[in-house]
Amino acid sequence: MQLFVAVTDNDWFALHASKQSVDEVNFWRPSPEANFKVLQPGELLLFKLKSPNDSIAGGGFFTRFLQMPINMAWETFGEANGVRSLPEFRSRIARIRNVTMQVADNPNVGCIMLAEPFFWPKSEWIPRPPEFAVSNQVGKTFDSEEGAGRRIWDAICERLKRSPASLLDQDTATVAAIESNGFGKPQIVHPRLGQGLFRVLVKESYSRKCAITGERTLPVLEAAHIKPYSMVMRHEVSNGLLLRSDLHKLFDEGYLTVDPQDRRVVVSRRIKEEFENGKEYYRLEENVLREPTEPWARPSLENLEYHAYNVFR
C-alpha cells in the first residue's frame, strides 16, 4: 500500500481538528493545472503540518481527484474545504497564486477528495520522518511495506485502532486498512462517503448526464438516493441516481421509478389523476436507464426493488 505524506496548511488542519466529527475533506490544490496520480482509491494521504509543528497529524482515505470550479467545490464541500466561507476560499487561493481575483472569477481548483478523515490530538502526532526533507514543500510517497514507510504505517495503524466506533464499523476503509497490515493494494472497500463525496461520485459515475433523459446541464442535475438515506444511513454510489431536479422530486415522492429487472422507467398514473397533466413525463415511460460503466457504481437490484415496491405507487 502506498502512503502519501502531504505538506498541509496549519489553518486548514486546525479548522477540521476543531470539529467534533468530520466525514469528508477536500485537500485542495490551488493550481488549475494541478493533478494527482500518486494514490489509488482506498490508500492513505497523511497530513504533515508545516513548521513549527512539522509532524504527521492525521490523514484520510483517497477517493477521487477532480478539477472543479471554486464555486462548485464550495457548494459541494462547504467547510470541508478547510475554510469558513466562499470569500475566504477565494481569498486564500488568490493569495497562494499571487493573483488578484474578482468576485465573479470562478477558476478551477484541484480537489483531492478524502473520506473517513482523522485528526489526532497533539499528543498523538508522529514526528516528521528523517527521510522527508525539510525543504520538501509538497509531499512524499512511501511504501508501507518497507523502510520508513513501514515505520510510518505501524504508527498509523496503532492510532487507527483507537478510531471512533463509527470508523471501526464493518466495511469501512479504516477497518480494511487495519486488516491489510499495510501489505498489497487496498482492499476493494470504498471509504464511507460524506454527502459531498456522494454527490461528486454519482455525477462522475453517470458522466454528468441524467440517468433518464441524458440532460447535461450540470446545475439542474442532482444525486438522488434510491433507498432513503434515513433507512441505510450510508451514502453509497450503488444507491444513487443522477437525475434532473424535477425527476428527482418525482422519484422521491413515488411518481416514477425504475423497473428492477429490465431497468426501464415507469411513470405513475397518479400524475395525470392528481394534476391533470404530465405528458412530458409519460413520454419517458419505457426509457432504459443510463447506467454507469463501473459495476460497483450501478444501482443495486435490492435498492431498485425497495423503491419500486415501497415508494412508487
Rank of each mutant, 00 (worst) to 15 (best):
4 F>P: 00
5 V>P: 00
9 D>Y: 02
14 A>M: 04
17 A>V: 11
17 A>N: 11
17 A>P: 03
21 S>Q: 13
29 R>M: 15
30 P>Q: 06
33 E>N: 13
51 S>R: 12
56 I>W: 02
58 G>I: 14
60 G>R: 12
61 F>T: 03
61 F>A: 03
65 F>G: 00
67 Q>G: 15
77 F>M: 07
80 A>R: 15
89 F>C: 06
90 R>T: 06
92 R>N: 11
93 I>Y: 03
93 I>D: 04
95 R>G: 00
103 V>Y: 05
109 V>E: 04
112 I>P: 06
117 P>H: 09
121 P>H: 09
130 P>Y: 09
133 A>D: 13
134 V>I: 11
137 Q>Y: 10
141 T>I: 10
142 F>H: 07
147 G>R: 03
150 R>Y: 10
156 I>E: 10
160 L>T: 07
163 S>H: 15
166 S>F: 12
168 L>P: 00
169 D>T: 02
185 K>N: 10
192 R>H: 09
194 G>Q: 04
195 Q>S: 14
198 F>K: 06
206 Y>L: 09
208 R>L: 12
213 T>H: 01
214 G>K: 06
227 K>L: 10
227 K>D: 06
237 V>T: 14
243 L>I: 05
246 D>G: 01
248 H>G: 02
255 Y>C: 03
256 L>Y: 01
263 R>K: 15
289 L>I: 08
291 E>A: 13
293 T>N: 14
296 W>Q: 07
299 P>Q: 02
299 P>E: 08
301 L>K: 12
301 L>V: 12
313 R>G: 13
